[in-house]
Write a protein that binds this DNA or RNA. Structure first.
Length: 341
DNA sequence: GATGCGTGGCG
DNA sequence: TCGCCAAGCAT
């Protein structure tokens, strides 16, 4: 047996015994999972932890049990259900994809067709093809990059090593049970071959890992240094009119695109005025860390002297914290006790 | 290839 | 407290 086949066989045997029970999974060795649930979970899991996804996946599948029902949903309802999960372009692409797939009568079953859909890239197309359609595609996510970099002791730093790692990963992919194998490699990376302090002692591949043999497993994969994270400043207005506050849906593109928010300015490059003239006073500052910058947002409140010049009025009692992105939840949590009449 | 895009958890 | 990181994609 070739070395690559031994590695795949060892991984599958380990997965049969240790596969995690996740809401979007079916037991190893059985028929493939529902493509809708595979797709939805894979999109939610993009750059997002399993713990964060669980509740969202349950709520989405309860409210929209199949792709046709999701395709028929209102944009604002989907954005509100996604609120708090982050990377909101995923929610917009999710709806566009659901509508395209429903109009076409079902998912494409091959990787190229899948990757042509909105929000489905190299990783997700391979994952759906392998897990839902039993295609022998090679899945390469952050976990697999780490596992392969260690197995073959690849010293090239990411992201330059991406192509090399993908090619090496492809040499391992078996023809049989590609879906279970894909999930096995990711599970190994998530639970044993972890970024820091990998549990090599209980790894099913310990005797086949070059990095382990060289004593450098925790140091791989190497990564190029990241640029420093700048600090930005901005203002958010909690504009009162009677018992209501002004809220608005942000423009569909860019930061927090399409989500419900209190009017704000400056921190995202937009230089907009407040929603109208008012007796503004500062309530405090909220700090929030995004992927590429840190934000200090000054929270101001006041009573409008006229009708709002942007957004729409929402009664205080109807403001739904759960429908807000994380930043606006922080703003609301800080301000709410201070603006009670 | 580089950049922009959220959030929460962990050492 | 802080940097790193998590089943990436679009441009």
């Amino acid at each position: 047996m070739r070395e690559s086949k031994v590695i795949a066989a060892d991984l599958l045997a380990w997965y049969d015994a240790h596969a995690r029970d996740l809401p979007w999974r079916v037991p190893p060795g059985g028929p493939p999972a529902d493509p809708y649930r595979v797709w939805l979970s894979e999109v939610m899991l993009q750059q997002t932890t399993v713990a964060a996804v669980r509740g969202y996946f349950d709520r989405f599948t309860t409210r929209w049990p199949d792709i046709a029902s999701l395709a028929a949903a209102e944009d604002a309802d989907v954005m509100a259900e996604w609120a708090g999960l982050g990377y909101y372009a995923r929610a917009r692409n999710l709806l566009a994809c659901a509508r395209a797939v429903t109009a076409a009568g079902g998912f494409p079953r091959d990787r190229a067709g899948l990757q042509a859909l909105p929000g489905i890239g190299a990783y997700t197309s391979a994952a759906i093809a392998a897990i839902a359609f039993d295609r022998p595609e090679t899945v390469v996510d952050g976990n697999v990059e780490r596992v392969v970099a260690r197995l073959f002791a690849v010293q090239t730093p990411l992201p330059r090593a991406k192509a090399e790692l993908t090619a090496l990963a492809a040499t391992l992919t078996p023809a049989a049970r590609p879906g279970d194998y894909a999930q096995a490699t990711m599970d190994l990376g998530a639970t044993i071959c972890t970024p820091r302090s990998p549990a090599c002692a209980i790894c099913p591949l310990i005797h086949r890992c070059d990095a382990r043999a060289q004593g450098i497993a925790p140091d791989l994969p190497r990564k190029s240094p990241k640029p420093p994270k700048p600090l930005r400043h901005g203002t958010v207005w909690l504009a009162r009119q009677g018992d209501a506050l002004v809220m608005e849906h942000r423009p569909p593109k860019g930061l927090l695109g399409g989500v419900l928010a209190f009017p704000s300015a400056e921190w995202d490059g937009r230089d907009l005025p407040p929603p109208g003239p008012a007796d503004w006073r500062d309530l405090g500052v909220v700090r929030h860390v995004f992927t590429h910058f840190t934000l200090d947002l000054t929270v101001r409140t006041g009573h409008l002297t006229g009708n709002p010049q942007r957004g729409h009025l929402v009664p205080l009692r109807q403001i739904d914290r759960a429908a807000l992105p994380g930043l606006m939840r922080k703003v609301w949590d800080m301000a709410r006790p201070l603006i009670a009449d």
